[in-house]
């Protein structure tokens, strides 16, 4: 059976005449009704948010875009952290002092050199590592919690803000820096 009207129904693409035809077919043909229900059940699974099916271990680095996927887990973790604060204030202080590993990644296959500079390096440039022939450059850094400003320097002189970190601000030299906030201060 190749009743494309079933998919049009699933995708909310039916006009009024199509809807009349669809309802008439459902009433007239049991096989059409069964086909529709079968595809609707498949659609329920197909439209399940993929994010729900990937556990936190799938997130190899705390990049902002990946942290967003863990939002519900983050809420639970934050609630747990609040409880810990109430009970053991000193432990929280220790946590705030401890560095957080963070992986910076940028995709630029067209450059032969990539560096990062920011408030956490006293604005000294650090070279990034090229990931084979993939076009990606990366560097892992341990950063203290709090707010950091940084920018990538590509090919020696092109300053590029991190495209996955929406928070930005203009610097004093006409450029734009990314603003990274690691951890919530309690």
């Amino acid at each position: 059976m190749n009743d494309i009207i079933i998919s049009m129904f699933i995708d909310d693409e039916l006009g009024l005449d199509d809807k009349i035809e669809f309802v008439e077919k459902v009433h007239a043909r049991a096989d059409f009704k069964d086909e529709t229900v079968s595809l609707l059940n498949q659609e329920k699974l197909l439209r399940t948010d993929p994010v729900e099916h990937f556990s936190p271990v799938a997130i190899p680095s705390p990049r902002r875009s990946r942290k967003m996927l863990l939002f519900p887990v983050g809420i639970a973790a934050a609630a747990l952290a609040v409880a810990v604060v109430i009970l053991t204030f000193s432990l929280v202080l220790q946590q705030q002092m401890s560095p957080t590993p963070y992986r910076f990644v940028i995709y630029r296959p067209d450059v032969t050199q990539a560096e990062i500079t920011g408030s956490f390096t006293d604005w000294e440039r650090l070279p990034m590592n090229k990931l084979g022939q993939s076009g990606y450059w990366e560097i892992d850094l341990d950063l203290p919690r709090g707010e950091h400003r940084f920018v990538y320097i590509l090919g020696g002189d092109e300053r590029v803000a991190d495209p996955t970190v929406p928070a930005r601000e203009a610097d004093d030299f006409g450029g734009v820096n990314s603003i990274l906030n690691l951890g919530d201060r309690i």
């Binding site: 190749n2 009743d3 494309i4 079933i6 699933i10 995708d11 693409e13 079968s38 595809l39 498949q42």
Partner: peptide
Amino acid sequence: VKVKVHRARLRLRNLL
């Protein structure tokens, strides 16, 4: 698009 979407759904169901 209409044809391909529906064909893809049917093929997916058969595969599953």
